[in-house]
């Protein structure tokens, strides 16, 4: 049984600067998001119990082949990529359709892992759409996964409690970052990543219809304005009182 991990290339968030409340993306390299790396780490651990392979799936522009090396260095065994420049701006419904089509090309899929949301937009829409497209059950907020024959036992991290459920496989599971701390890959594994097998498809190869118009239009996406309140306190007690009054200590 193979474990699929869907990953997204995003701009390196540490290198983005904000100008006029908008991100400046010039010369910012593409990387994988941290939650995707956690999903990958969970997949590598699961692989040992299911005797399968970890297959990284991603869709993006021409840089995706380079970006996915990071996932192959961190434990992915092979990659299935859909490469097309139009995918850089594609909305989530298109991406979901493309990913589902790519996953259909893989044999013996058991678990399909996603990060709970991408580290750039964090809309979390793609996971459900892929599950719906494939007709597989979907489980969210997973912080622990065990595969037991045809079932996966998933511990979900909910706001006030954990919930343990069983789901028949194949299933689409999205994980929270606490599921696994991503490893730091070794230099040798980075250098070997380029030699791992990669299947690269163009959109035309997938046999799917891509709608010409966009389903979703982003009207506004601005960085929040942060202003100092300029409150001067004279004691710790006073500071605690103000923080309590603003409910800052309850988080």
């Amino acid at each position: 049984m193979n474990i699929v991990v869907a990953v997204k290339q995003i701009p390196d968030l540490q290198q983005i600067r904000i100008r006029d409340r908008r991100p400046v993306l010039d010369y910012v390299p593409c990387v994988l998001g941290d939650i995707d790396k956690s999903a990958l780490e969970a997949a590598v651990e699961l692989k040992e119990s299911v005797q399968g392979r970890v297959i990284v799936v991603s869709a993006g522009n021409g840089e995706i082949e380079d970006t996915v090396k990071e996932a192959l260095a961190a434990g992915g065994d092979e990659a299935v990529l859909v490469e097309d420049d139009t995918l850089a701006d594609a909305d989530s419904s298109v991406v979901a359709k493309v990913l589902a089509a790519a996953i259909r090309k893989i044999d013996d899929v058991g678990v399909i892992l996603f990060g709970e949301g991408s580290a750039d937009n964090y809309s979390g829409r793609v996971v459900s759409a892929v599950a719906a497209d494939l007709g597989y059950p979907q489980v969210g907020y997973a912080k622990q996964i065990e595969v037991d024959g045809p079932l996966a036992r998933v511990t979900r991290s909910l706001e006030d409690s954990d919930e343990i459920i069983e789901v028949p496989l194949p299933a689409v599971i999205s994980v929270v970052s606490e599921i696994k701390e991503p490893r730091i890959p070794s230099v040798t594994s980075i250098l070997k990543a380029r030699k791992k097998p990669k299947a690269i498809y163009r959109l035309d190869d997938l046999g799917i219809e891509i709608p010409s118009g966009k389903n979703i239009t982003t009207i506004s996406n601005l960085a929040p304005v942060s202003e100092r309140k300029g409150i001067v306190v004279k004691s710790v007690d006073e500071l605690v009182k103000i923080l309590k009054s603003e409910r800052r200590l309850e988080r």
């Binding site: 090396k69 990071e70 260095a73 890959p185 070794s186 230099v187 980075i190 250098l191 990543a193 380029r194």
Partner: peptide, 8 residues
């Protein structure tokens, strides 16, 4: 590869 080694 160099970017990744740098970040490692």
């Amino acid at each position: 590869e160099q970017q990744l080694i740098q970040s490692v």
